[in-house]
Design a protein around this nucleic acid. Structure first.
Lengths: 236, 236
DNA sequence: CGCCTTTAGTTTACAGTGTAAACCGCCCGG
DNA sequence: CCGGGCGGTTTACACTGTAAACTAAAGGCG
């Protein structure tokens, strides 16, 4: 019974009110972002879409595939990002920088989904999170080789690049209050208990610096260093 | 006689046939390593220990705490590692190198547990996986400052170090067949389906290089570069 | 010794999970 | 008109985490 009062849809992606794989995937991503990964349940997601849990199974073979679909879909958003070029027309440095920033943007937009991107088992051993799709991997390698890299250094660059991104972004996202954990977001009953740091004098002393968020600058600097290092790889 | 002797053992670590928090934690880590994270269930773990599921709750408040306990316990194995020094007596470079190798050893010994180490929500925002304990963080900062680093560069080094380790080790462990996924380990019914790579010519061409496992060398090289970079940070 | 409290583990119970299988109403092409 | 399939629901089941009640053995202490 569809009463005229429609609950506000967070992401009116596709127009039809019927179900649809992409609608499910998007709703799943949104749900994770709002309530955390642990809360994502077939029944709850169904309810979110105004449908019974089993209805989802017509479009998604299992919960695990649902999650894989979600990460795939989120990753493919990168192709929509106008700041991320499809090839290295402006040089490989430009390509890498823009790709890295695109991924960082993506991670910060989906802080709860990102750990999923990072740790879901890859379908092939050579696609490395967070790049995570044959399409992107190929695009990356194409960009480098088209810029004069030969195969071996291109692969080396691919490895260094993904490793750097994974480490940095996972940590940035985790520090940004991305409780992978279960529940509470707005429960002020936990005053964080201010753990007793007397046993850890260095942490205690540097607490200010440790709490400071320098992720953005660190990202830029490390990325710069990485690119420089990749540049050295070019001739070999 | 045997019953009259009292076990005033200060360290009742294990050995007794009775239950015990550390026994549970170790069994949990072993179980994850053997059957995968998804299979770790209170009942199954109980069965493994010859006990009913609910018995575990006397030593562990919940499944989530069980997992936190497991990662904590695994991480603390590092303190037992004779190759990893407790301080920077032989210089901070030596300390960092040995610590990094210790962590890599740990990751490779517990490939299934490591993703857990990497992604469990940290108890404080400044402890960064995979170092992951106040004790280790403080030890790290102590080592650096005792070697003449002042606070800011020490923290910067801490960040770069953890970020590098997390990225590299997570990827190395993932590529090493660490299916975070659910089930099968010895099911040969999946012939890997040899995905059609004609649409991805670069991947297809570089497949050999991509499949090559150069983790160890990359680890050494990147670590070296990182340390060099940290050295530059020292004066500031 | 008898009794009582504590400890260590079990039993029972329940709400919630993923998903297989059967079911049902509706639209549509013949 | 009719039958078939498409899209969704109902029912069912094995399994999960965990609260609560229970039981049996082990000290402690008069």
């Amino acid at each position: 019974m569809a009463d005229s009062l429609q609950q506000e849809n967070i992401q009116p992606d596709d127009e039809e009110h019927g179900l649809n794989r992409n609608r499910i995937l998007d709703a799943g991503a949104a749900y994770i972002e709002n309530y955390g990964l642990r809360q994502l349940t077939m029944r709850k997601l169904g309810a979110e879409l105004g449908v019974e849990a089993m209805a989802l199974y017509r479009y998604v073979p299992s919960r695990d595939d649902l999650m894989d679909g979600i990460v795939e879909r989120v990753i493919n958003d990168l192709f929509q990002d106008p700041e991320v070029p499809g090839d290295a027309a402006n040089g490989w440095q430009d390509y890498l920088i823009r790709l890295a920033h695109g991924l960082r943007r993506l991670a910060l937009t989906h802080p709860q989904v990102f750990p999923l991107i990072a740790t879901r088992p890859p379908e092939a051993p050579w696609i490395r999170p967070p790049l995570r799709s044959l399409r992107w991997t190929d695009s990356f390698l194409a960009a480098l080789t088209s810029s004069g890299f030969s195969d071996k250094p291109a692969v080396a660059a691919y490895r260094g690049f993904s490793s750097f991104l994974l480490g940095h972004l996972l940590l940035e996202v985790a520090s940004h209050g991305a409780d992978i954990g279960p529940e509470e977001s707005a429960d002020p009953s936990k005053p964080r208990s201010a753990t007793d740091l007397t046993a850890f004098p260095h942490i205690h002393r540097m607490q200010a610096q440790l709490s400071e968020d320098r992720s953005a600058e660190e990202f830029e600097e490390s990325l710069e260093v990485l690119i420089e290092r990749i540049g050295l790889l070019a001739e070999s």
